[in-house]
Design a protein around this nucleic acid. Structure first.
Lengths: 223, 223
DNA sequence: TTAACCCTCCCCCACCATGGGTTATTTACC
DNA sequence: GGTAAATAACCCATGGTGGGGGAGGGTTAA
């Protein structure tokens, strides 16, 4: 099942300790073999294994012992996103690099949340894929430009919030689960003042509950 | 106050519409002039202005009209982080690229939250700085490798959570401000079951309130 | 100097949620 | 066949939430 082009260009018995061992989990055979050929023929890199699904990988990947896994997010059987924690359990020291056509926010953030070290789209040129493998080995976090843009904008607050500074502050406190009383104490204001602010927040956001206010504010990046 | 090396290598009247206009806000004169020289002498790029502080920039930057601003986070007077929203207000279409020696998480996340389009450390080689300017113009989000690593790991969940899947799910719902009753309805389970899960969560996290549970879980990246 | 906005505080009301104790069942995976 | 997880039930006392109104003092900008 595994594919190894390492012997094509250099003797394994000499350099295998220095080579970065790369595994590929990708259901499309053409793409899988293409990456394997690319990486296997790059000096300093070696294919440790190539598998069409997580189920296939699970049987051999611990023995193949890769340093970096290139992982597709859409796989037959268990999805790539859900495979991440399972792979981390099998190989805790191995870096997982997502390589996929998908650019949906949920897939990106679920992948990174599950422990992926980087996220590349498949239009990434070969030399950048190799550079990204090197980068994860150095502790970096390689991302395609559009992925990086989405990741960065996920941090960005909405500048045109209808909430005042105090209202934003209080809504942030509410979102941490604190009671109005505790918020009042920590901000050194009266409970009645907190209640007034909350009423104003609810009016501005057109909601009638804590949960709806938090959701509206998060959706609009007011907090 | 502004520095312009554009005339050194090409006629402004011909190519100025095609050049990317770059401004620099950096208090260290040597560094500021160095970047200005680098960028001004790169084909396709032009220095629109170079200023030692936000206060100096504020007077002229709207007239200088840059496409990209290179911004230091530590400046005399108003800090670079706090200058970001003010610059965005003056020039809403302009991309802000942080260029700094600081790698503290709070500075990074506050910068990105305030609307920075990218974050580079000052050990970035000149050609990568120029590439990053190009990348923000294309809608990307350039980051130094170590910055990207910090950003990605901020998404990463803790795999060794003491909470079960259901407990994690319920604590996430609590963190959105929903009541136990509403959580029960949305998960199609009894209110008493939700209460049981919450009691177990509190025991495992050694807390005695909603707010403390949310804080403990967020601090440890259980949610 | 008004008006607008923000932050602050006060009263009223009805209703619902929270924290904690204990025990017990069913399901599912080693 | 045992352990862990998810489910549910009963008890208790306490506290918080949402919404109605009004009102004073501060700043800022037209």
């Amino acid at each position: 099942m595994s594919t190894d082009f390492g012997h094509l260009h250099k003797p394994q018995h000499m350099k295998r300790d220095l080579d970065i061992r790369v595994a590929i989990i990708e259901d499309d055979e053409t793409i899988r073999e293409g990456y394997a050929f690319l990486i296997g023929n790059t000096s300093g890199y070696k294919i440790a294994g190539a598998y069409p699904s997580f189920e296939d990988a699970a049987k051999k990947i611990v023995h193949d012992d890769p340093d970096v896994i290139l992982l597709d997010v859409e796989l037959p059987g268990i999805s790539g996103v859900d495979a991440i924690p399972k792979l981390k359990k099998l190989l805790p020291e191995t870096h997982i690099l997502i390589l996929t056509v998908y650019e949906q926010e949920t897939l990106i953030f679920r992948s990174l949340g599950n422990g992926a070290a980087g996220y590349l789209t498949k239009n990434t040129p070969p030399e950048k894929i190799v550079a990204a493998i090197h980068e994860v080995m150095e502790g970096g976090g390689p991302m395609s430009a559009n992925i990086a843009r989405m990741v960065i904008s996920s941090f960005k607050r909405n500048e045109s919030t209808p909430l005042t500074r105090r209202e934003t502050e209080i809504l942030e406190q509410i979102a941490t689960g604190k009671s109005r009383k505790r918020i009042a104490e920590e901000l050194f204001i009266d409970l009645e003042t907190v209640k007034s602010h909350i009423k104003n927040i609810y009016h501005k956001l057109n909601v009638h509950s804590k949960a709806d206010a938090i959701k509206a504010a998060k959706d609009n990046k007011f907090i």
